[in-house]
Design a protein around this nucleic acid. Structure first.
Lengths: 242, 242
DNA sequence: CCTTAAGAAATGTGATCACATTTCAATAAA
DNA sequence: TTTATTGAAATGTGATCACATTTCTTAAGG
């Protein structure tokens, strides 16, 4: 039978949406908020019956997610959520910094007051989510916050890559959050907003970098090893065990 | 009937390769070397019959390429090679610089003498390709050159993104090359190799940036507008007409 | 108790079919 | 000549089926 432990959060299904896109969006969201843990086997038929659709659109959705490195196709052709390692985690964060700094710099000339107003609204929502300890809202709104900035540059081409990184970080962050109470002790978003208001490039890039770092910075090497390698704690290449 | 103008260069078909992967690799290669021009309609059945396979694996291959932004899914669900614009081109080059500089920096600690030797061999092949005006070999070997450096860091995660950019640049470069005799007047690869030999980070990043810039730098705004907008030359947003 | 072997179940893959929509082309009207 | 219109062809989509491979389970043997 199908895997009963596989829960896919419902999503709004737009009318014009193809079933393949529905499957993609739903799976994507599930990965983004960490509903599917690393190591859990992801089967075509399992997902198909879970979403009550045929295998065909699921296969296409899985190909899309695999191409974004949100899923990993093994040699046996089985598909899994890629296990996290300490090295991979650091590469991910470093790459996220590099690309988002680039995106922020390219977006700054297009930042309007309307956009800043919207960012303030998102930031307020996030403040409330912090109090309510609503981590899923936190993840989603944080991505909206950053995406809203970078997408101001309408010719920007980095968003797909940034989203790919978010997708790779997602499944792990959810688990990491279980080991720590919360995150975002310092609110760097207000610094980002201030830098945008003054149109100060240097401040903006510093704030973005600080925000990304703070979002994962509480995961020092010790914490990482504790989460990643319950067995052999010395090996940072250990796969993430559940 | 199928589109007879659609020529897909043959590729070597490994034994363990699934048909879907074969379709993906072949299409990918065709895009990379510019065999499929922007604006050309890419149909599932057309590709399937061109490659003498069924539509199913073609669909999956197209999803993969769309996810890498090598193809573009229109609202009519039709798939096309994304048209180039001047702005998009500049964003692409800028993004390529940002990511490849990051990748180079992260790769430097892993560069061994063996790797440098291999780079020298590739560079030699490229020198010969320049003389022979073999542009396809030039494109392929240039990618091998850069990829060999970045992949030295075995935990690196930026290659898929770099390849995505190459894939987006590919179809356009082929057309641009028709308007210019050749490229690579100055050989920045030797500067890259020298920087790698001395393990000098600053020199390496400068050389990489210069190489990327030189690879497209001869396309100044005038040349771009000439290629992109044969009609309204003033509008840099014009789509690339064939 | 552990290992091994065989049968059963599950899985990925690719082809084919049906259906709705879109695109194209030929014809008719202005 | 140009513009509508109408029927045919083409196209994307999703479901289903068959087949080969893999994985899991069960039972026998040590």
């Amino acid at each position: 039978m199908t895997n009963p432990s596989l829960v896919l959060p419902e999503i709004e299904k737009s009318g014009k949406m193809t079933i393949q896109e529905y499957a993609y969006v739903r799976l994507r969201h599930a990965l983004m908020v960490g509903s599917i843990a690393p190591g859990v086997p992801v089967t075509i038929r399992g997902l198909a019956s879970a979403m009550e659709i045929s295998p065909t659109p699921v296969r296409e959705a899985l190909r899309r997610l695999s191409s974004q490195n949100a899923l990993c196709v093994l040699e046996n052709r089985r598909i899994v959520v890629p296990p996290m390692t300490a090295k991979r985690f650091h590469e991910l964060v470093s790459l996220r910094c590099a690309i988002e700094i680039h995106a922020a710099e390219r977006a700054l000339p297009y930042i309007s007051d309307n956009i800043i107003d919207r960012l303030v609204v998102i930031d307020t929502i996030m403040d409330e989510a912090v109090k309510a300890e609503d981590q899923i809202t936190l993840i989603i709104q944080n991505q909206l916050f950053h995406g809203h900035i970078y997408r101001s540059n309408r010719d920007q081409l980095s968003m797909p890559m940034i989203e790919s990184i978010w997708l790779q970080l997602g499944p792990f962050m959810r688990i990491a959050l279980r080991h720590v109470g919360s995150f975002y002790g310092v609110d760097r978003h207000k610094e980002i907003i201030a830098a945008l208001r003054s149109r100060n490039l240097g401040d903006l890039l510093k704030a973005v970098q600080a925000d990304i770092h703070d979002g994962v910075g509480w995961l020092d090497n010790d914490a990482l090893e504790k989460i990643l390698g319950p067995g052999k704690s010395g090996n940072t290449d250990e796969h993430l065990a559940l």
